[in-house]
Amino acid sequence: MSLMQENEIKFYCPQNINELDQIIKTSKEKLTFVAGTTDLMALEHEWKKINNLVDLNCVKELSQKIEIQSDGILIGAAVPMSGIINHSLIKDKFTILVEALQQVGSEQIQNRATLGGNIINASPAGDSLPVLNVLNAQLWIGPQKNGEFEKIQVSEIMSGPDETTLKTNKYIAYVLFPFPEGENLFWYFRKVGQREALAISKLSLAVLGWFKNGKIENIRISAGAVTAQVKRAIKTESALINKELNEKLIDEARKSLEDEIAPITDIRSNVEYRKQICGELLRDALFQVKLEN
């Protein structure tokens, strides 16, 4: 473990998870866990205020580990997004995740930015959040208690815009992506922004589901930048489950989603646009699914 201190700025470079947890245990200050720093440093006034830094890049288990397990893929929260994008098995099994991450910032950003950072920022416009949500991603929260991480669903992490439910000096260690249960999987992701690269979302939509005997057996719908939390559109989902997909149903689903989301007007877009386009994206998604099945 190395601690360096300079003009009131303290920063730690723990070499493994045990060292990291030990730092947290003995620390009396509020710590800021950093990895890619892409969002932190872009907000200059926030960056200036941070005095106690823990560099998660030092912890190889968190910044390099991508592990295939029997029930899914475990990804270190500090692995740069390009490491996930270029992983052949993730590309194959979780194409929707790769497509979403490819739309985060630019390649320069993807080489530094991490899933953990995107989640912990808790921006309603966080690009990966709707996709993590439809993939039922599980977050492993440290420090460990009796050698175990606390496990929560991604939908439980945000308490409001830019606010998380994590207590002081807790960190995201890993994200577990369970392999989806269904066969004949369909999925859809679209992000709407001012331009394709480096745009903050006006809105986004992630859909994942599967058919059985000609009917939708399961579908998960999560929209980004139109709700204050990471939330699935449960009402719209249940209107679609166990149904055969036809034009009438697709139109009902579109209307249902427009009613179910609660967007706000801000500098990037307004309520009317967000509602309408979100509904249209769902229609687009379902028509595409109908064509392919």
Partner: peptide, 13 residues
């Protein structure tokens, strides 16, 4: 070996 924005990389890393 990877391209990054040097305005977003801190000295301590």
């Amino acid at each position: 070996g990877r391209r990054v924005n040097s305005c977003l990389v801190p000295a301590f890393q």
